[in-house]
């Protein structure tokens, strides 16, 4: 079961790569990058999962030692939290670029934009 979950996460990554390479529409390329973002974040969180583990938050009255022995890995979660927010900044910048491209060239088609140049 474990390897099936990892393979599905990688399949999502590959779908995103397919979108980035094979599509000509700028919005579709942006969506492909977003899908890659989801897949990588999900994979990192899954790698830190401990079977029957609890969330890395200490409840009131709980023993700290016992908690440390059953909690899931907090380090990938902290890094992915950073990554999610950076993904938002990335999306904002890419969408702004797409809107400007449309204003200047009147199309989302990459091939057309390449032909039109200046």
């Amino acid at each position: 079961m474990g390897i099936a979950i990892y393979m599905l996460a990688f399949a999502l990554l590959v779908v995103g790569i397919y979108g980035v390479i094979a599509k000509r529409n700028v919005i579709k390329i942006i969506l492909g990058i977003l899908i890659i973002d989801y897949a990588v974040n999900m994979l990192l969180v899954l790698v830190g999962y401990r079977r029957d583990g609890v969330a890395p938050i200490l409840s009131e009255g709980q023993d700290a030692k016992a908690w440390a022995a059953t909690s899931v890995d907090p380090l990938p979660q902290a890094m992915v939290l950073t990554s999610i927010v950076i993904g938002l900044g990335l999306t904002a910048l890419m969408v702004a670029m797409a809107i400007r491209l449309y204003q200047k060239y009147g199309t989302f088609d990459m091939n057309e934009i390449r032909k039109l140049k200046g």
Binding site: V45, L46, G48, Y49, R50, G53, V54, A55, P56, I57, S71, V72, Q77, V80, L81, I84
Partner: peptide, 8 residues
């Protein structure tokens, strides 16, 4: 949520 990451 399922893998114990409520903050995420």
């Amino acid at each position: 949520l399922l893998v114990g990451a409520p903050d995420l």
